[in-house]
Each structure stands twice: as C-alpha cells, then as structure tokens.
Simulated assay, not measured.
Amino acid sequence: MWFSALSALWLAATAWAAVDRGEDGNIRSIALRTHTLKQPYLDSDMSSRWYDFGGDTVIRTDSYIRLSSDRPSQNGWLFSRVPLTATNWEIEVEFKISGKNQLYGDGFAMWLTKERGQLGPVFGHTNNFEGLGIFVDTYKNNRPGTVFPYVMAMVGDGKTPYNKDNDGKETEFAGCSARGIRNANIPTKLRLTYFQDKSLKLELQYKTEDEWLLCFETNEPPTIPSVTYLGFSAETGELSDNHDIISIDAKNLYTTAGSSTPSKKTPGRGGASKLAKQKEGGSWTWFFFKIIFFILAIGGGYVGWTAYRTNQKRSHRF
C-alpha cells in the first residue's frame, strides 16, 4: 500500500516537472497537435490529417516539405485544415533556404489569414489577404538602404495589396535584415509569439544554434482575426531557390493565476521583476518539495513502527 502511494506521488511529481514553463515561470504551454507538423509529414494514406498542400509543393517524408524548387516560376503552399483559434500562441518553424546560384529569389512567407490554399503573387499566396503575413524576402526589388534578405510583417485588411515593386515598404508593420539566413550552416528557425492585445514578437535563429536574435517586438500588436489558418507559401520567378519547411511546432500559451502576460521591460525595473519571478518560482518549488518530504517522513515513520511491532511479536513468540 505504501509503495503504491509512493509510486503515485512519483508520477505526480514527474508530471509536474514536465510542464513547459518557457523562459517566464508564469507562462505555461500546451502543444497544439492540430497545427504541429513533423516528419514523416504524411499519414499511411499519403495525406496529412491536419495540413493540405498544393501548387508545386513536393514532400520528401524523411527530409522536408519543399514549397518551391530551385527552378524558375515555382509556386507552392502548405496550409492547416483547421483554423487557429487560440488567443495566445507560439509557433516555431524550422526552415531552409538554399540554392547554388549567385542570383536567387524570391522568398517564402508564413501566414495567419482567413484565406487558405490560394495561389497568388505574394510569395505564392493570394494578394489582398486578411490577417498576418511574415515574409522572408531574399530578392531586393527597390528598397534603397535596406540589407537583404529581409524579414518583415504585414497586416492585411482584405483590401490593401502588397506592392512587390518596392518590397512592401509602405505596408510594413515591422521587420529586420537577416543576412546569412540563406545557405546557413546551422538549422534556421523563426519563432513567432503572440499574446492578444499584449505583445507580438518575432525571433530568428540563423547565426548560432540555440541563439535567438530578436527581429521585432511590440506591446501594441495588430488585431489578428479570431479565426485564421496557419500556412506557408513560396515563390520563384526568373531567379530561384529551394524553400523548405522542416518542422512546425505550435503551442497554446496561457498564464497562471495571479500573473500577467509579458510586456516590454521598463529600464531599471527588469532586474527586480526577474528577481521577483525567481523568488515566486522558488517558493512554489520549495513548497512542493516540503510536501514530498512530509509524506516521506510519515511513510518512514510508518515503516519503522511496523518493523518494531513485527520484532516485538517475534520476541514474544520465543
């Protein structure tokens, strides 16, 4: 009986320790299976339960989902079958842009839009979209003073078009240069984190593995439609590249009771805030282990008392 109780306690402790807290101890996450995609990508019937694909997209089950190959005039897309309805979420994508040519283009995009699976002129997806687009643009058309490849976000209202001639300069919400993101020597990734009405943050990994570079962060995020589809698309013109999706890891984020969603740090207060969070996390950890020690002490006393009673009975028998 005692060992059964101890086993149950151990399982509970293991489950507690396995909760993903992220960098902020007050943030928890739950994997969104409906929007996560990893090798081998396809089910036994050679289709994906959660994603559709079309255009020139090619799937190699042991390696990648190739939205466009290193050939001219390619367009391909990959879109979730069910909408993303989570209020707060984090989407981490491993991708690869590669090619042998000195001149290359055009790039690929990540979408959170009402439209899904519609071929078009905006990195392989339809124009006049409604929602959020993240563009990894590798070919510079006309943006003096901007270093390419360039990563930018655009918020579409369903009416305003993306202007390819100036690389979407007038409709850019935020962005950053990312020289070295093509033909990188490490796995290249992007991580988009969104808290409704609180923050939107885009991070990139392409210089050093496990080192995330902040592309942009705002505590005044755009309004994203409550029902959107997660998708990816790519396009090549006269110039070309391979645009591959390696994996998609989507999570629903939520905060614990009494905590607030993250916001931009105020100079001079970041250290105090971090210390408070560490103390809060430490107090909970210590409280949890005190419970374990208490139960173990009771159990140990019970085992000792039982052994003593058994010895007493044996001595009376002789």
Rank of each mutant, 00 (worst) to 15 (best):
G168V: 01
L112V: 10
T138I: 06
V122I: 11
N101C: 14
N163E: 10
E170G: 00
L132H: 07
E115P: 11
G175D: 07
E115R: 14
N128Q: 13
F108G: 12
W111N: 10
V147H: 08
A153V: 03
Q102E: 15
Y104I: 12
V136D: 08
A174Y: 00
N142T: 02
M154E: 14
G107Q: 03
F108A: 07
A153W: 08
N141F: 07
V147K: 12
Y162Q: 00
Y150D: 03
A178T: 10
N101P: 09
D167V: 00
N101M: 14
G145M: 04
P121I: 02
G158Y: 05
G158E: 04
P121Q: 09
C176Q: 06
G107E: 04
Y162E: 00
G117E: 11
G145S: 01
K114E: 15
L112I: 11
K100H: 15
N142S: 08
P144M: 01
E170V: 00
R116M: 02
V147T: 14
G158M: 03
G131N: 05
D157Q: 09
M152G: 05
V147D: 12
R143T: 03
N163I: 04
L103R: 15
G105D: 15
G168D: 01
E130T: 14
F108H: 13
N127S: 09
G131E: 02
S177H: 07
C176K: 09
E172S: 04
L112S: 11
T126Y: 06
T160Q: 09
R116N: 10
Y150L: 03
F129N: 03
K159I: 01
P144A: 06
F108T: 08
T160L: 07
G156A: 06
G120I: 01
K140N: 10
D106C: 10
E172V: 06
K169T: 08
I134P: 04
K140H: 10
Y104E: 13
M110P: 06
K164E: 05
Q118H: 13
L119C: 13
Y150E: 01
C176Y: 08
R116I: 00
F135I: 03
N163F: 05
G120M: 02
K164D: 04
W111D: 10
D165K: 10
G117I: 05
A174T: 01
P144E: 10
M110N: 03
K100V: 14
G107H: 06
F129T: 03
P149C: 06
K159N: 11
R143L: 02
G145C: 00
N141L: 03
T171C: 03
G124D: 05
L112T: 12
